[in-house]
Amino acid sequence: MGSHSHTPADVSHPGPHDSHSHDAADPAYIAAHIGAYFKVGAALLVLTGLTVGLSYVDFGSRSMNIIVGMIVATIKASLVAAIFMHLKGEKMTIWRFLIMTAIFAAGLFFLTMLAHSDPILGTSHTTH
């Protein structure tokens, strides 16, 4: 299984670790990361301000504004997942779950888009 092989997730935290300890179990490791939690938190607050500010900038069309807004939101979400949720350096088992989740979620969105491009007669709403 992934926990004993060199996976991309393991590489980000090189060093010896046995199967009985979490990578982040060492108090010294944690103390060193407190600063990172504050920095990421500050970055998230700044990016929130940026999201709000950019929504009042005219990027040419509402769709462009939505794309810009979603890019910033994705950056924020990645920071939360990687640092606060410890996905950076997480075991491969968890990454496998998430890869499958991403595939199924993408499938879900794709199916909805199919319905949008080929609606069932009489089910599309025409006003509000």
């Binding site: 929130t48 999201t51 709000v52 929504s55 509402r62 504004n65 939505i66 807004g69 979603m70 910033v72 939101a73 924020k76 979400a77 939360v80 997942a81």
Partner: peptide, 13 residues
């Protein structure tokens, strides 16, 4: 994380 997406799509965009 969910709110990070909810906030812009309903409040801003």
């Amino acid at each position: 994380l969910v709110w990070i997406f909810v906030f812009p799509i309903f409040y801003l965009l």
